[in-house]
């Protein structure tokens, strides 16, 4: 069961709130201080990705963030966009990043995924168990 559950309308202004809550719960759960910047960035990226997908598909549904500290600190960020949109993630190399033809959206998506993959050792992106959508699941060890 989640320790803290946060549900927010898919607006950019709320992503900061999700980051603040996510870091506060991580600290409380016992995640090492030197990992908190990465937790903050990763939760922000996962929520930014969810908000972008909801905008892309015109979905007013809330984005769900669940934080749990049973054993380790795990965070699930759940969107309601069609699965094929959510799973198409790939990091870009330097040549691709500098390519004039790359759209801003594709660049931001690729960079966001590189940050998630780079900062979260235990990362999964998968379809939600029920209904439409994907979940980004991130786990960090707790130092207890």
């Amino acid at each position: 069961m989640a320790t803290v559950r946060l549900s927010f309308s898919p607006a950019p202004v709320h992503v900061r709130t999700a980051r603040l809550v996510g870091v506060a719960v991580a600290r409380r759960a016992g995640v090492r201080e030197d990992l908190l910047d990465e937790v903050r960035l990763a939760i922000g990226e996962a929520c930014t990705r969810a908000v972008a997908l909801h905008h892309q598909y015109g979905l007013p549904d809330p984005v769900l963030v669940e934080m749990s500290d049973s054993g380790a600190y795990s965070v699930r960020v759940v969107d309601r966009a069609p699965i094929e949109a959510g799973l198409g993630l790939a990091a870009l190399n330097a040549d691709e990043l500098a390519n004039e033809a790359l759209t801003d959206e594709a660049l931001t998506t690729g960079v966001g995924f590189a940050l998630l993959a780079g900062f979260v050792e235990d990362l999964q992106v998968r379809p939600v168990a029920e209904g439409v959508g994907t979940e980004v699941r991130m786990v960090w060890p707790v130092g207890r």
Partner: peptide
């Protein structure tokens, strides 16, 4: 003190 993928995208632009 915080920079995410959206900010990086703006800088690349």
């Amino acid at each position: 003190d915080f920079l995410d993928s959206t900010g990086l995208g703006v800088l690349v632009g």
